[in-house]
Amino acid sequence: MSSPSVVGTAVTPRTKEAVSSRMSVAARLRRDWPLILMCIPAMLLLAVFHYLPALGNVIAFQDYNPFAGDSPVQAFLHSEWIGFGNFQYLFETPAFWDSVRNTLGITAFQLVFYFPIPILLAMLLNSIMSPRIRSLVQSVVYLPHFFSWVLVVSLFQMMLGGAGLIAQTAREAGFTAPDFMTNPDTFYFLITSQAIWKDAGWGMIVFLAALAAIDPNLYEAAAADGAGRGRRFWHVTLPGLRPVIVLLLILRLGDALNVGFEQFYLQREAVGRDASEVLDTFVYYQGISVQQWGVGAAAGLFKALVGLLLIVGANKVAHKLGEQGIYAKK
């Protein structure tokens, strides 16, 4: 060991990688084994409940039959390999393409109607002078983030449903309010307003941080040069927010096939399959309810692969635009 030791060999500074690289593997193992040991429980859990199922996606290429053996592993070993048969079946199923269309439609809809809301909220909050009102608003809008989807959908049901508060108030005033909870035509609006109610306040945090990082002198200098509110917004605020906006846009695009599961699962009965089926619910109903395991897994694998491509692609675009993206360019 070439590093300076204070008490025998037990103490070795680990701050500098240069020092580590000059040590032999055995010496590093002797030094670092407790740290490696600490990682093992979490690694084991992920191995069993994350990576093993990820590998298990290969049943997409099987005519998986759970009764072919006593355990899923036995069944897996005894099920017949059918190549791309499940995918072929999947791509010929109109319901699958309906779910893809719904998923992408919802992503597009939310990019337009959801994405700007946290930005606007952050700017509104930033313009509030009184610290007390500001922290009151913050406390209130962050709260629904911690509610479950079941709770959020239930609250919407109680407010907007056929027997909800709004319908009840309208009835007393002699009107009939439409039931938004069961109308497939307004379903995109419904789920987007639920998403806004739950998470727009939380999503604001990132933009608040970005706004706080803008140098106040820039505003003053712009004002001294005669820039009004609008100009200051355009030339100071927006450029300050740009990196965050681009980053989150990329993340959302990379996640285009993930629109959530529980929200749709919970409302499928009320609005019907046509309006509410997204890729994740398709996987569930095809795979677990109808027990076409292979086809469900094929749909899941399709989603995972396209999703991976989207993330990598979105990062490429980010790097091209000179932004950092989710992972740094190597």
Partner: peptide, 23 residues
């Protein structure tokens, strides 16, 4: 890398179901 990879690779609902019930 092993931990960060979980952001990119999802387990998938069906295989997860089979693993959990299989255990």
């Amino acid at each position: 890398f092993y931990f960060l990879l979980t952001f990119l690779i999802y387990p998938g609902m069906i295989p997860s179901y089979l693993v959990v019930t299989g255990l």
